[in-house]
Write a protein that binds this DNA or RNA. Structure first.
Lengths: 178, 178
DNA sequence: CTGAATAAGTTGAAACGTCAAGTTATTCCA
DNA sequence: TGGAATAACTTGACGTTTCAACTTATTCAG
């Protein structure tokens, strides 16, 4: 049986067997793990993982507030997506918008209600993360995972277009949390 | 009656620094890599990564056809999602539905048009995968990646509910490709 | 053999993300 | 100083995914 999945028609460098296998596993993890995390968080804490990420990012800022453009970057989302999400979070009373430093800036601020919601969600979320990821890996593997993903990100982030702004902003915005 | 003197501050095992850092990177990769892959494939080959996966899976089957329930499993998607996607692919003329063995089974079959479309998409896709993932990793790291993700999947898949059928079907359906 | 339970798909509505277009504020520079 | 360009959003429409409900076929118990 031929190991190559799709016969290479053209003189293109194909994936070798190791790579192909790695890719299959990686894609499965990509698909299944976020789905699992997300649906558990939705069920048991009433928020999506992206919403959790946004609120968690806010909670770590001085004054629990951050300008949307920066928040978009730390949350790995587009400004548009963030704007929609902030609207949803506002409707729940977990976040409020405040006009920022200069007139075109908008800050999102985590409310007390949002903070306590987040405090309840945190343990639920991290217990699941631990169960699904860290409990099945050795400490050595955790290090490998960190190293490999950070390498991939390093190559990926510079060319990510979360708007042309991301490139500049990301470095500063992430500095404190890496 | 139990008197609780001091409220438990952190009754939950938290993530340690290594784990937290690994988790941040993992989540970023989760978010950014599929988005990058997907949008490039959409732009340059006119299909989503999920559609590509579905068609690639079909192309490997004898007769280039597979029953939907099995296809759903190998594509890591729900039956409902798959049904919608097959409808789209049918509209493009890349796949057709055929009634399967027993009356309630439906097979999806890759058409010639679909096959040649796939052959064009393959190199485009894999070049990008290589560029974003394998070119930035050492062979050693590729092995680590494979090992770590396959471990995570092993724990994850058994409890995945892509319908109660997944558990049984997956083992058989995946056997040939691992 | 008959009715109940389950399996396999389909479908429509609601929720979410993306994309393009629109708004307002700020900066640039001639 | 006065446009033009750009930045920081917001909004609405569109496509996709999920969820629940529904159909039809098959299996199983008695």
């Amino acid at each position: 049986m031929k190991r190559q999945v799709i016969p290479a028609a053209k003189p293109v460098r194909w994936l070798n067997n190791h790579e192909w296998s790695a890719w299959l596993h990686l894609m499965a993890t990509f698909t299944l793990l976020p789905a699992a995390i997300d649906s558990q968080l939705e069920r048991e804490a009433g928020m999506s993982h992206f919403e959790f990420g946004v609120m968690a990012a806010l909670s770590r800022q001085p004054g629990r507030r951050l300008q949307l453009k920066d928040l978009a970057v730390v949350a790995n989302g587009s400004l548009s997506r963030l704007s929609h999400v902030i609207s949803r979070l506002e409707r729940q009373g977990w976040v409020r918008r405040m006009s920022g430093a200069n007139g075109r800036a908008t800050n999102a601020e985590l409310t007390d209600k949002g903070y306590s919601k987040l405090m309840k969600a945190g343990p639920i979320h991290f217990a699941e993360v631990r169960r699904l990821v860290f409990d099945v890996l050795t400490p050595e593997e955790v290090k490998e995972l960190r190293r490999v993903t950070s390498r991939i990100n390093a190559a990926l982030i510079p060319e990510t277009n979360l708007g042309p702004l991301a490139r500049r902003t990301r470095a500063g915005a992430l500095r404190q949390s890496s």
